[in-house]
Write a protein that binds this DNA or RNA. Structure first.
Length: 472
DNA sequence: CTATGGCACGGATT
DNA sequence: AATCCGTGCCATAG
């Protein structure tokens, strides 16, 4: 039975492969867009009503039964339940474009609605002319919330003084979500910091750190920052921590969805995790619940009317209808395949990296994509695609890039951090000494490598660590 | 003279 | 085929 269905799309097998590959390498946000696009332009494709678990109210995909509620309470704590979790916060366009019911869903992801959202906040305080300018600017803002347009040109076009345009831009930037309309991530951060500063004053060097640029921030180079601004290392660390926790460089993304949790570790912000890992009922003795987020709120299906239409229509239109039908069929198959791969992959990863998930970085098992691909009997590149560009939320609330599960050195780096933290601060360990320490703990490394890891973690060299101590 | 960072090479990984 | 990563050598700062 499955055989036959598969046969039908055999002639397009290369297309099938190509599409599976591209879908696999997409994260939830991108997949959401892709599905919306397909829904909009292919009449054969429809979104069926959502189905919820009668027990817990979770959205279910396809014919699946709720994996959480169907699990007996006596489940082993080392088990993990991996399942697909459709999310209602992903809005999709209904097949009939004239409907705007979905607009009053909680979140508005469209640029249009973001623009409207902001415009409503500031419209009262603007004169008519300025309102037009504001509308224009908001329409030029890209999906991250940035404005790449030259203000002087806008001023020219509307025959208004530049200062007036700047004023409008300022108002947009200060409206929620704060920072939209900036030209760069740095500018957005500046605006956000200014706003915070008005109610809760922050030390002035916070601004200087942002001026140093986004790159320094995301790499967490405390040492450099401290040196350049003549502040202590801990002050620098505190500042960067504050910034990554309270500010968000892509203002429009942060507004999108309500559960933004900045990844503290990397100083980067991921808006929607692709996978969420939790303990059942937040109880660490219960099994893990692994949700693979899918943007299909409801189920994708072939429009039943469409099949009839094909039979009844005249010969010449039949062909067109048929290609639509096959395209839709293909997409559904590919998405299923993607889901299946993700599910199998996460099952393996969670099993292997269980210690890491429960107990932290130190226990990250060094594993390569190649090894995993053998176990799962898929091609290496499949794993690569499935893993890249995706993010995972851990039970701790941290959001990490999925690549991290394959980071060979992270485990060692965290041991290194421990060693340095517990060292005698008056006589800091030199790199050579750290090599010995690590070797005795079962991590043979070259001296040069220790130095690399140290700088990756933003830890100063031995002689400077001593100074740091004095300065305090 | 020692500790460290820069550059570049080679092997592994993607 | 391209990229990443560990490592060795060498220059330089302390």
């Amino acid at each position: 039975m499955y055989q036959r269905q598969f046969q039908r799309i055999q002639p397009q097998t290369t297309a099938h492969l190509a599409q599976t590959m591209t879908l696999l390498s997409m994260n939830v946000d991108e997949l959401n867009q892709e599905i919306n696009r397909a829904l909009a332009e292919n009449p054969a494709l429809v979104m069926k009503e959502e189905r919820r678990c009668p027990g817990c109210g979770k959205l279910l995909s396809g014919n699946q039964i709720c994996p959480v509620c169907s699990k007996p309470k006596s489940a082993q704590s080392d088990e993990a339940i991996v399942f697909l979790s459709p999310r209602s916060e992903f809005s999709y366009a209904k097949s009939a474009p004239d409907e705007d019911i979905y607009m009053d869903e909680v979140d508005n992801t469209d640029e249009v609605s973001l623009a409207e959202f902001i415009l409503r906040q500031i419209a009262y305080d603007l004169e008519n002319q300025d309102r037009i300018v504001a509308a224009y600017i908001l329409n030029q803002v890209d999906e991250d919330g940035f404005l790449n347009e030259n203000l002087a040109e806008i001023a020219n076009y509307y025959h208004l003084p530049l200062s007036r345009i700047e004023n409008v831009k300022r108002m947009i930037q200060h409206a929620e979500p704060v920072g939209v309309g900036s030209a760069t991530p740095e500018e957005a951060l500046m605006v956000q910091l200014e706003v915070i500063n008005e109610s809760n004053p922050v030390p002035p060097y916070y601004f200087d750190i942002i001026r140093m640029g986004f790159g320094v921030l995301s790499k967490k180079q405390f040492a450099q920052i401290a040196k350049a601004l003549k502040i202590s290392n801990t002050e620098a660390e505190k500042a960067v921590d504050f910034i990554s926790k309270n500010l968000y460089p892509y203002p429009a993304r942060a507004h999108w969805g309500n559960f933004r949790l900045p990844s503290e570790e990397k100083g980067q912000v991921y808006s929607h995790p692709d996978v969420i890992i939790n303990h059942m009922n937040n109880d660490p003795t219960l099994p893990l619940v692994v949700e693979i987020i899918t943007p299909t709120y409801g189920t994708l299906d072939i429009n039943p009317l469409y099949k009839q239409a094909i039979k009844q229509s005249a010969e010449e239109t039949k062909e067109d209808l048929k290609t639509d039908y096959e395209k839709a069929n293909l997409l559904i198959k590919c998405i299923q395949q993607r889901n299946n791969t993700m599910q199998r992959l996460m099952e393996k990863i969670v099993h292997i990296q269980r210690a890491f998930i429960d107990q932290g970085e130190k226990f990250l098992e060094p594993i390569t994509r190649a090894e995993l691909s053998k176990e799962l009997e898929v091609h290496e590149s499949t794993i690569s695609r499935a893993v890249s560009n995706k993010s995972v939320q851990l039970p701790s609330g941290q959001i990490i890039p999925m690549d991290l599960f394959f980071d060979k050195s992270l485990g060692i780096r965290s041991v290194l951090k421990e060693i340095i933290e517990s060292e005698n601060k008056d006589q800091p360990l030199s790199d050579t000494e750290i090599v010995d320490q690590l070797k005795s703990q079962g991590y043979p490394l070259a001296r040069r490598t220790v130095a690399k890891y140290r700088s990756m973690e933003g830890i100063l060299p031995a002689h400077l660590r001593k100074q740091e101590r004095k300065g305090k």
